[in-house]
Design a protein around this nucleic acid. Structure first.
Lengths: 233, 233
DNA sequence: ACAAAAGTGTTTGAACTACACCCATGC
DNA sequence: GCATGGGTGTAGTTCAAACACTTTTGT
């Protein structure tokens, strides 16, 4: 079963950068490490790949363990293999970022793991190279979200326009012009307006929208034909 | 030296999707496999990660072995770990795409390896899941090149505008409007016009340009601030 | 002189920017 | 009735798309 006797073997980890949106802020889900080394320090959720698993499956499993969620949007965003990155062994880590509505996890998180959502702009120092992983994931997320409307993966079934704006502002760490952004959204065909209002954030209340999943899938699946837009500042 | 005794270990490979541009067409560099299994079939250039190497280093090394080139633009574009993807053992492969001027490799390629450039639109069936890897790499390349002018990595020091156009047309598999594209290029600040002409392609001859590396680096380094452009067809 | 590719300019419509006011409601 | 955030409209500008002809030079 192997012609490759002479080559070294590695422990293979997956680490998940779990981005969430709680209706107001972009956040990242971290766990307090329950084992040595670096026990009790903040870390990304991760785990080792099993013998009969693909790395993506391992990432799904690990995410499911922590959050209880399946079918989560997840994407490769890095491979970290510095020989001494983990003090306890030679481990290569494959990183994925995941996008979830953080509200969906509120009961489940913190049962087995000490997990906590942190604002993306202010989270603690992490073990090993996990801070680098988060940076890389943020860059990947910005890039992908610039071309595909994947940030809707972070929103609940029903969401308001002020929420989408807050979400994009969080991801790109910038202020947007509401009016222009709303126009862009409404001409995109991605939104279905409902008659319900969310009154929690204001007296007037903001209409709930749902995602037009046909349009969404189409835009997500589109294989880029051509659009260099690198004439920007 | 290890608290992680109970976890399985894996052979770790890197595979390089080597994109090249020969002045006319986009192409991909393939090798005829020199060892079992699947000896003598076409394959991506790859190799196993060594004990004291980062995966990126392994990719650099493998690319250097084949082409003699260092400091090549390279980017992660996949992790393939299907348990039976390699018939001869449990191997997880980390994929990188590389961008090089294929002219730089013409003497070196085919010394040790039977390597050959193939047009991207017409290359042979590859071993294992390597065809999938190429598809993934093409998608990654399109995505990155839509936001950053990385395709200049494929061009020689001096290049002509018709070459850039052919390059973009090859990457996006589409026809471009010359005039509009030239305008975009000239307003980008990326080009320095020289007084030399390339007369090989036509009687009139096309002016050579060089890359304005300051502008280029700036555009490459820019951390996306904000530009959802997903209102496209 | 003619073939073959390089290179140039204008017009039109669409999209983005910038900007200010009214709306609905709870208190 | 007023404070609070939600939502709408318009004018100016920039940018992308569509489009055809002139230039250079080798043969």
């Amino acid at each position: 079963m192997t012609l490759y006797q002479d080559y070294p073997k590695f422990l293979l980890a997956v680490d998940c950068i779990i981005f969430g949106f709680n209706g107001e802020h972009l956040e990242v889900l971290l766990v307090k490490r329950g084992f040595e080394p670096e026990i009790n320090k903040w870390s990304l959720m991760g785990g080792f790949v099993r013998e009969n698993e693909r790395p993506e499956q391992a990432a799904d499993r690990v995410l499911q363990q922590l959050t209880g969620l399946n079918d989560v949007y997840m994407e490769l965003c890095g491979a970290f293999g510095e020989p001494n990155r983990d003090y306890a062994g030679r481990v290569v880590s494959i990183c994925y970022f995941a996008l979830i509505d953080s509200k969906k996890t509120q009961e489940i998180v913190s049962e087995k793991y000490e997990a906590q959502w942190f604002p993306i702009s202010e989270f603690p120092e992490l073990i090993f190279d996990h801070n680098k992983m988060v940076s890389k994931a943020r860059r990947s997320l910005r890039m992908k979200a610039a071309l595909y409307p994947i940030l809707f993966e972070l929103l609940p079934e029903k969401f308001t326009i002020p929420q989408i704006i807050a979400l994009y502002e969080g991801v790109y760490d910038t202020a947007l012009d509401k009016r222009n952004f709303i126009r862009k959204l409404s001409t995109s065909g991605l939104l279905n307006k409902t008659s319900e209002k969310d009154k929690s954030g204001s007296k007037k209340g903001a209409f709930y929208y749902t995602l037009n999943t046909e349009v969404y899938k189409e835009k997500i699946m589109t294989f880029l034909q051509y659009l260099p837009s690198w004439n920007m500042d």
